[in-house]
Design a protein around this nucleic acid. Structure first.
Lengths: 323, 323
DNA sequence: GTGAAAGCGCTAACAG
DNA sequence: CTGTTAGCGCTTTCAC
């Protein structure tokens, strides 16, 4: 940076002002300095900058590499954070890198706030971090007063799904659940409750599923061995529904003619042109926006709170009226 | 850190020594300091550390959020880098965040070396960065002497695929290509060449495809309208093959009885239990290892070179002998 | 607008 | 093993 200042014949602080786009320099100098910096290939050192500022203006986000929906949310967090003048630090969770490791690496980077997607650790395990830095958990319902929570309204989502299928004339509506995944309990309960309320209690059929295509396929296989198989299936998420679609199709069923299948999330998987999955949207943009807002709010010293984002039914082509 | 030192009744440097596990402290003090640090919830500041050391011991990696295979490679890069004592900084490429942005943010972090997955930019556009930091491109064949290159042997991969299917008795073997994606040209050429060599020249059938499920589905639809449709399809990658599988299944074809389908990459998609896709493996672990090795090599001042990783045929359940 | 000076949290180099 | 000193690259403050 000193070199740039020398080359431009100005002081170091002035260069600093220009590089950060702060007020205090004329447009002419500004342009000249930027040009010279570009010529010299100067790129400011993010670490030194963040070290000097008491605030790093960094939001850390821990996510799973293999969850398409996490990818959607991460993308939106980049956008939302940028709007508020924040950078984003990523930390991946994978089979070989657990969540505490991911979160701790974010803390080492001195992120101002942390967003954790699909938190798997017990909240208590993360409590030790929560004193140092505001933390927001997305897509996981837990009661932890020291944590910001952003989640979709799982009960409303499953209610909408069941009502929609029932309106279409389906009665044998099965649910492949998410086992112990975040939100699974709520969705399962709402499924049962809504079926009962619509007088479909005798057709309640919950299969243990999970988050992956394999779980969806396994669940579907099990459902298709029923004496009277269901005419519609609500899967825990889009990945799970993709597995269901795939399994059903490979056993010769036509979708949606022979079986209606719904997903959950409205991730990219659901929007694939030839898939066009009917699903319940958890708007990634809205979740990301809410998570960033909550993080910034806590940064200002406000108490952590919960934001419940309303889901939306997205009707595409994997469902149709019965018969 | 000063607080920890005070609480432990030792000097700051000693705490530093203990925290980075360097020689120069007795086991007793070491343990005591670690205990006190943990009690106080002290976590060292990664940025300050990296700022002080002339080397940041950071490898930056730019990847695409929505590419399952990139996820596999990123996971392995974490592992490979850790073995060499390096940390990893992630930077995502997505529809709303382009590659130069991603790469530049990594440079701001002063990564010692950069790994770019599926580089899309023209090499020349990245040249300006390449003087500042060693760069390795993975899964993209380009001749750029200032860049380290790690790539699978695309020609060998497609040769193996065609030979395998031909051995199974298939003659009408079609190829849904990757359009202008990295490696696509090589695979296309190798497909043509191998078909010719095996006397199957008259059955050569290349469809314009792409990287996504949608491309695979579109390509398959087109292939199935042929007067005499193919009996086997080699898709550009696993995502593309997933689209093909899905489309074929939804039109009532049984896989592999009616149509054999092969993918490429051996990403998680191919290993999904109910999918069990026959594919050509580009071993993520090996690619990641090679990329890290190359990066470190260039860091030592050696000239960039190219590492070609041999693919491997992985036979699963989406292919079978003709008839 | 400028330049000098101090400091972010840490590590490296040294004399004790 | 300890304490001191210096400095990474930048931003901030302040007088000019």
């Amino acid at each position: 940076m000193g070199d740039v200042a020398k080359a431009a014949g100005v002081s170091r602080p002035l260069v600093s002002i220009v590089m950060r786009d702060a007020p205090g320099a004329s447009d002419a100098t500004r342009e000249r300095i930027l040009r010279i910096a570009a010529e010299m290939g100067y790129v400011p050192d993010a670490r030194a900058r963040k070290l000097r500022q008491n605030s790093s203006r960094l939001i850390g986000i821990s996510f799973e590499l293999q969850q398409p929906f996490h990818g959607d949310v991460v993308e939106q967090v980049y956008l939302a954070a940028a709007e508020s003048g924040y950078d984003v630090a990523l930390s991946a969770v994978s089979p070989s890198r657990d969540e505490p490791t991911a979160v701790e690496s974010l803390i080492r980077e001195r992120c101002d706030a942390l967003i954790v997607l699909g938190m798997k650790a017990h909240a208590d395990d993360l409590r030790r971090f929560t004193n140092r830095v505001p933390m927001v958990s997305v897509a996981r319902r837990l009661k932890a007063p020291f944590l910001g929570i952003v989640r979709g309204d799982d009960k409303a989502g499953l209610r909408m799904a069941v009502e929609y299928l029932a309106d279409l004339g389906h009665a044998r509506i099965a649910h492949i659940d998410g086992a112990d995944a975040p939100g699974s309990a709520d969705r399962r309960a709402s499924y049962r409750r809504t079926m009962q309320r619509l007088g479909l209690g005798e057709y309640v059929d919950v299969i243990a599923g999970g988050l992956t295509e394999a779980d969806g396929a396994r669940g579907t296989r099990e459902l298709l061995t029923r004496p009277t198989p269901p005419t519609a299936v609500i899967a825990f998420n889009d990945r799970c529904a993709t597995g269901a679609l795939d399994y059903a199709a490979r056993t010769g069923l036509r979708i949606p003619d022979d079986l209606s299948i719904m997903g959950y999330d409205d991730s990219r998987l659901a929007r694939i042109p030839h898939v066009q999955m009917t699903t319940v949207s958890q708007d990634a943009r809205e979740l990301a926006r809410a998570a960033v807002d909550l993080a910034l709010e806590q940064l200002q010293g406000e108490a952590p709170r919960e934001i419940v984002v309303q889901p939306r039914l997205v009707v595409r082509e994997t469902t149709q009226p019965l018969g």
